[in-house]
């Protein structure tokens, strides 16, 4: 193990980790938004919206995220969508993970006891009120952990944008493997940073989950 090399290059990996964190945060925000819209569409009373939601989930979960990213970044200019690599990365990954999150959210909402909705409707709440004031608060608690699993996958998934040359952790590791021929050291260095990020996020999710349980 070449510790001298690791000490020499680690600042570049820290910089790259910052990019990975930025990507993860922006992708999470976009993913949660797409997920909420997707789940709402899939559970809507209008069949058109339901069909749109189902198509969204099926297409984005049924094809590789890497291909979706390539269509957006390399194919986008052909249909007038010009994005830089970072923007394409965030949008591509966000819309992709949104399809998974939509299913997570729908699952959580549907696993709230049916009696809750019936009771709320019987007490005179409208459909929307029952959803907003009775179902969602309970479903939110149920979805924190599974959404945490989605976010964990998303953080590791940000590595894909290395393929469109965003200078994040995996791209940096790849470049230094090429220039130093020390794949093991570069793997450990970038791997450790990924695991720190995932560990910290995991603590945050567990904290949210605990808090949601108490209240």
């Amino acid at each position: 193990m070449d510790t001298e090399l690791i000490l020499r290059v680690y600042p570049f990996f820290l910089q790259a980790a910052v990019v990975t964190i930025q990507l993860s945060i922006l992708t999470t925000i976009l993913g949660l938004t797409c997920g909420a819209l997707g789940a709402a569409a899939r559970m809507s009373r209008s069949w058109v919206l339901r069909a749109i939601g189902a198509t969204y989930v099926s297409i984005f979960r049924g094809t590789p995220a890497l291909i979706q990213l390539f269509i957006l970044y390399f194919g986008g200019p052909q249909i007038g969508i010009q994005l830089d690599a970072f923007e394409a990365g965030v949008i591509g990954l966000g819309v992709n993970i949104g399809a998974y999150m939509a299913e997570t959210m729908r699952g959580a909402i549907e696993s709230v006891d049916k009696g809750q909705r019936e009771a709320a409707r019987t007490m005179g709440l409208s459909r929307a009120q029952a959803m907003r004031k009775v179902i969602l608060p309970q479903a939110m608690r149920l979805m924190i952990r599974p959404l945490g699993v989605n976010i964990n996958a998303l953080i590791k998934g940000t590595a894909l944008v290395a393929a469109i040359s965003v200078v994040e952790l995996t791209y940096t590791a790849q470049r230094y493997i090429g220039s130093t021929y020390k794949p093991f050291e570069m793997f450990l260095l970038s791997g450790a940073l990924y695991m720190i990020i995932i560990y910290v996020v995991g603590i945050g999710i567990a904290w949210l989950d605990r808090k949601a349980r108490i209240t």
Binding site: T170, A173, P183, F184, F187, G191, Y194
Partner: peptide
Amino acid sequence: LFMGTPLLLQLFLIYFGLIQ
């Protein structure tokens, strides 16, 4: 290690690591 790191990174490790 394998559950905490991206697959793409692992592929680089295995491909280039074995060559090394």
